[in-house]
Structure formats: structure tokens, C-alpha cells
Design a protein around this nucleic acid. Sequence first.
DNA 1: GCGAGTCA
DNA 2: TGACTCGC
Length: 924
Amino acid sequence: MDEKRLFLLDAYALIFRAYYALIKMPRLTQSGTNTSAIFGFVNTLEEILRKESPTHIAVCFDPKGPTFRSEADASYKAGREATPEDIRWSIPIIKEIIKAYNIPILEVEGFEADDVIGTMAKRAEKEGFTTYMMTPDKDFGQLVSPNVIQYKPAYRGQDFELRGEKEVCERYGLSNTSQVIDLLALMGDKIDNIPGCPGVGEKTAVKLIQDFGSVEQLLNRTGELKGALKRKVEENAQQIRDSYFLATIRTDVPIAEEPEELVRKPEDKDKLFAIFKELEFKTLRDRVSKRIASEKPMPAATASSSGGFPASLFDFADEDQTALPEEEQTECLPVDWKLITDGKEAESILSKISVLQRCGICMVAEGENDMTAQVKGVAVALSDTEGVYFPIECRNGIAGVLDVLSREDIEKVTGQSKRDYVLAYRLRNDGDAGIRNYYDVSLAHYLLQPEMRHSIDTLAPIYLGCEVLPEPVLSARRGAKKPAFTQEEIAHWACEQAALSMRLAGRMRKEVEKEGMTHLLEKVELPLAAVLAEMEITGVRIDVDALNEAASNLEARLGVLESDIHSLAGETFNVSSPAKVGEILFEKLGLDPKAKKTKTGQYSTSEEILEKVASKNPIVGKILEYRQLKKLLTTYLTALPAAINPSTGKVHTVYNQTVTATGRISSSSPNLQNIPVREEEGREIRRAFIADDGHLFLSADYSQIELRLVADFANDETMLNAFRHGDDIHAITAAKIYHKERDEVSPDERRHAKTANFGILYGISAFGLSSRLNIPRADAKTLIDNYFEMFPTIKRYMQESIELAREKGYVATKMGRKRRLPDINSKNPVVRGYAERNAVNAPIQGCAADVIKVAMVDIADKMKVAGLKSRMIMQVHDELNFDVVPEELPVLQKIVVEGMEGAYSGQVALTASFGVADNWLDAH
DNA sequence: GCGAGTCA
DNA sequence: TGACTCGC
């Protein structure tokens, strides 16, 4: 290939994209440093070198200081999120790496990387190059020409994409790539904070460009437009012109380098590998050395210290031995797998399994919901490297596995114990899951890194350095791209999962022990998985008739509201569309002509904003009511009956034990944690959650658990005493803040104190408090100041939490649950503030989560011992709900209250209050 | 203050 | 993918 092929990389865009693509499964070093940004970037760079063999290459960075755009418009890129600390410190390292690659870095003061790329691409074009602009940013479409092509890197399973003239024009229906600028000028770009024309989105913008050809033409001929669009364009003409300027990538930047100087040179391999070693990039290093070995020597005069090509395989053999702990060498061995279909063979394998001390389990089932998923088979790993798979058709094999699951003397290792529990329960069909002695690597990892993902697929690459087989498609769905996998492929995958969970178990156990969380894992989280599984299995009975009646009632009211709204607006429109609502309210009706809040170009129509203009037009109140009712209707009244499992007649919520960063449980399908309680209208939905026929609904909740914990942690005598005496904590707080006697406190003052009490927990600012209470910012500040003055202990406690986090890099609950806060020492105040709020909040929220989990395990245990037929059916917030056989009520009540109140001992008791009825609302 | 889940 | 509302 004699052709000159120049690759220009948009460094920041690629780095940000890499970092966020890996945010849920970051690359971490042994010491926990997040190297995602570096890894992702280098990976992309390597891929280009390997696949595209560029003859010329350069990486373009944005300079530090201001650019001509920011000077022209202060708000330009102001909306961009603060750079995370992990990216910030990665930049110099990435630059070091690029230097080690001997690739030129282009950075020109006063100009963004975009402009440098644009300029260089145009210059190169004149000199006969084909230029590839490596960037995911759509703005670059404007530079595309026959010899300048945009190369969007591969992303999230999607392959890389080349955009030439044809692709760019087709994508937006343009006749010319330079019209990308016109398009951006109209529709704006929220990433770059290019405002565009408010109310004009992609669709309208494309149409305008097609009709007028350019922004200039459009602005000259606005007379041809009609109605709202005409007004929008005319009113925003200047903003559109400014946007055009901001969106235009410059091609006249004074760059010192010439295209020819960007010729590819050999990398300084020693330097490069030294950096890789530091960053623990083992596989990447292997890949790089493979590529170097396969490349022809480059005709560069400046061949550097690295010596000759091709590289010898022995070059770093020694280093390999020392670079990694010995155990890791065996961790990526392939897994021997076997599909067992024959009954006899199953028997002989099962007898082998029955003498094992531990084995790995991977149940294969199709469907997200454990209660309806169809079991396809089960893999059992006999060792780290060997597994067998019993398909569901192999009856005695499956029966044998179920027997193994119930054996106390064999430890089972899995990555999804709750799902296994539910599936085993359904397979046995005898009212028992019969699962004993289970270890769950995902739960273990949840304690280690609560913010990450915890599947085997995520853990294996990180902890073992293994590649994992992709999850098989279990059956061909109509219209699906991929066909169903063969049984062999499924067996192979499942055996690998089971074997990998065994390999991970040792590592997880060690780490959990090291972090002092073994008790939390073994006495709380692991037993809790079974309790949650039982709750999912039991399910909740729903009064469908009541819901349907309420639904038709609501539909009627919505119909009336809708027509009222339409007639008030003078036109019919989709009231459910926030964009449309914004347009009607703020453009057509002109409520609040100035401070119309926008974020993505649209008007904000959140409840908060609408409340403020509600007095100006009755339509606003009706829209708010419409929204509230519509939400109730779609999210609950229609969704709940649809969630009923036809074979049990109940709703089986899925509890997720490994989702939240603080340790709380979350629930989904349906989410029981946002069933309304504040508004009367929504509360009624709870009436449809009922007990079984002839049974009772018991609801028990902790009162003020988080505030009690704060009082305890902070050692605040005033609060502790208030709780001890059963006083109204918010009234006491109000009396303190406003320097009054307790009975002189007005309802408003109490409300303010209540908001302050909770606000403190969440680390609210004066700004947040003022908007929440609808009071001036200064008043909110005074309120907070008074609060801290009257509760110095609370203030001290908060500061101590932050100090502790700074020292250790994490905060922990009494039970040892940790939340890591790497940003706590960040120089960026926004990022740091976030970490600081978490430092205060996480131990409190996490402790409350620990407490209720301990209570649940204890209560479930005692219920089992007492042989009760009553069932725990829901966990919501700080509340537990039970379906009660009436005769058992006294016994159960005792177990529940003692279990909840006994789950924590501190300076103040945690009290649980309860109620009994035949539905949730009345029991609460 | 944020996270979690749902609908458009 | 974002906006919104719920919860704590």
C-alpha cells in the first residue's frame, strides 16, 4: 500500500468514552486504582495500529487554557460535567504512553482538538493523504470529504463505523457535508453546550435544512415559515448565528507540524512496557508484543532504543514470571466440559460429585423473572477446570443435582444464589427449595465493590484475567439476529460459569476476610438471599377488581381533564409529552416569559417549575393533576394486574440484593419502593395489596430509624432524650432552632425543622433546602446555621465522617459494610462534595439497611423454628409486611417486634410499630 | 442531596 | 436515552 493514510485521534473524546463505557466494570489494579480511561484509550490506539496500519498518525488534545470559543461565549462547554478524578490523573500517563509509542501529540493554545484535527485533515488532503478522524463526535461530519473520513470507534458491541460523504449525507438527508454545521446550529448540541434554536430538534432541523439549504438562507427567508416555527426561528436568529459560529470547526489553526512529519515511527517498547507493568496491563502487553512481532520493520530512520524487529518471544519471558503471582498463571486454563444426556452416565458422574467437598453450580434458565423462567439445565463444576452439564431432559441427573444442593456437607458455589433458590424450589415442587451450604461470589463481591456489577462475566476478567464465553441465546426468538445455541454450546458456557465461580470463590473469600466482612457476608447477606427468595416465591395477593375499578374511575377523570386542558390551550396536544407541554405553557400561553428553564433545549416542566406558575393559569394545575393520575394509572393500576403470575395468582416482586451502593435492597417488576404514600390519591393503591383469604395483613415498620441512628452516632443528648421520651423529634428540633418553647412551635416551623432533619442526612445545601421549603435562600442558610449551632454534635459527627473518609478512602457501617469514596480528596469541588455527602449519608443509610437485614434473617429463622404458616411477603423501606394466619398473630407479632427491635443495640432503642388489617393501607 | 425504576 | 417521580 503506497497510499498515505493519516489517523488523527481526538484524545479527550476517546478517553471519556472509554472511561464511561467501563464505568460499571472498571479496570482496577491490585491496589484498586481505576485505570479504565488509560486502558480504553490505549486499547483503541492499539486496535488502529493493528487493523489499519496507518502510515501517519497523531493524537490531538485540547489545551488547558481558554479557546477562541470559550472567549466568544462564556457558557460554551460550561454544561459539561466535571472531569472525574480518575480521568484527570490519567491524562499525563496517557501522554507518556503516546510518547512511548513515538506518536506526535498535537496541542495548540487557543484551539480545541476539533480545530486541530480539522486543520490537519484539510492540509493533508492537499498533500494527497487519506485522513481518518478517530472520534465518536458527530460534529466532525462537517469535515468529511472524499479523502477525509470519520472513523467512529467500536462501542458497546457495535462495530466501528466509517463515515464518508455518502454516510454523513444519508444519515441526515443532507446534500453536502458542510450542512452538518447548519444542522447543529439549529438543533444544538448539549454536550458542547451549543444552544441551537429552542424547540427545534433533529427532525425539524433536518427539514429546515432540506427546505432552505442553509441557516443563512433560512434566516433571510423566515417569511416562508409559518406559525410557532416562524416565531421560534425569528426570535432566536442571533442565537442560531452564534451556534453556527460555535459549531464550525476551524481549518486555519497555526499548527507547527506538517502532515508528513506525522509519519509512523516504531515504539519505544521498553518504555511502553515499563508503563504497562506499572498499570498491570498484562494482556494488553501481550497483544502489543504480538502486533510488533507481526509487523514489518518500519523504514524509520529514528528507530529507537527498543532494538530490532521482530521482537523475540523471549524478550520478556523473565519478566512474565515476576510480574504476576503464581496462582494467576493457572487461572485461565480452559474448562473441560461434558454434556450428559445418558441416565447411566449421569449416575456415575453424580456418585463422583457426591464425595466432593465443594462444587460450582450454574443453573441455566430462560427468562428474567425467576418465578416464570424456564429451566434448561444445570451445570456442576467438579473442580476449577472441569464441569458437567445436565439438560433438563436428563431427569435423574437433575434429581441428583437437587440432592447435591441440599447436602450440608458439600459446599455449592454460585453467582446467583437467590435465583438458584427459586429455581430449585420450582424444580422440586414439594414446597421446599432444599438449598443448604451455598456460597455466592456475586454477593461477596457486592460487599467488596458495591458500586460495580457482580456477574461472573464481570468478575472473571478482573480477578482472573480470563475471557468469558458469551452468554448463549437459549432459544431462537422471532426476528432475533442470532439463532439459538446448540445444547453443546450451552453446556460449554454453563460449565465454564460454574468452574469460574469456583475459581473466584477462593479469591472472594480471602478479600472479604481481609476487609473484615466475613460475618456480614455469612451471617447476613448469604442467609438473606434465601429469605428474599422465599418472599419472592410467596408473592403478594392483589385485589384486581379494586384496581380495575379504580382504573376505570381514573380513566374517566383523565378524559375530562384532557379535554379541559385542550380547551384551555386552544388546541389538542399530547399532555403526556413534556416537550409539548413546555411549548404550550411557555410559548403559546407565555407563562413565565423569562426564566424558562431548559437543559436539553426543551423547557423544563417538572412539578417544581409548574407549581411556580400554577397561579397564572388554571391549565397548569390540571396538567399537574393529569400527570399524577396518569402516572398512577400506567405505573400501578394497569401494571400491577399485568404483573400477576397466572399460575399463582400473585405478584412476585424481584428483590435485588446487589444493586444499591449503600446496602439497601431494591425491588423491581413491580417496584414496590415507589408506591405512593404521600398523596391520598396514591395511597389508595395500597388498599389493593391484600392478605390471602381469611388471613390478615401485618405491617411493621421502624419509626425514624435513620434519625435515631444519627442521634446515636453523634451522641446528641437532645435528640437521644427526645427519642427516649417518645417526644415529637421534629417539634423538639424546631423549638431548638427557633429558640421557642416546644408548644409554641408553629406547624410551619415544625415542617421546616423536619425538612432540615432529613436534609442534614442527605447533605442538602442552603439552595436545596430553600427550593424544597420554598423559602428565600438566605432564610434557608440561617436555618442551617441555627441547626448546627443548636446541634453541634451533629455537625461534629458529620465532619468526623468526612475526615475518616479522607484518611481511609472509604466509610463503613458498624457491621463493616463499606462504601469506597475515591473522590473524597478530589480537587474538583463538585466531585468532592458528592463524595463528602456520601461519607455522611452512607454509614447511616447503610446501617439502617444492615439493621433491617439482620431483623429479616432473624425473623425468618424464628418463624421457621416455630413452624408458622404465616409468611413474610414484602420489604419496603424500613418496613416488613406479613401475610398472617390469624391464630398465629400473637406469636408472630412477638417474633417480628423482637426481631426488629433486637437487631440493633445503641444508646437509643429502635422501636417498631405495627398494624393489622386485611390490606396494606389499613395495616400501615 | 442521590439512587432506582418506569414510561415516552 | 432522557425526563419524571417515587423513596430514603
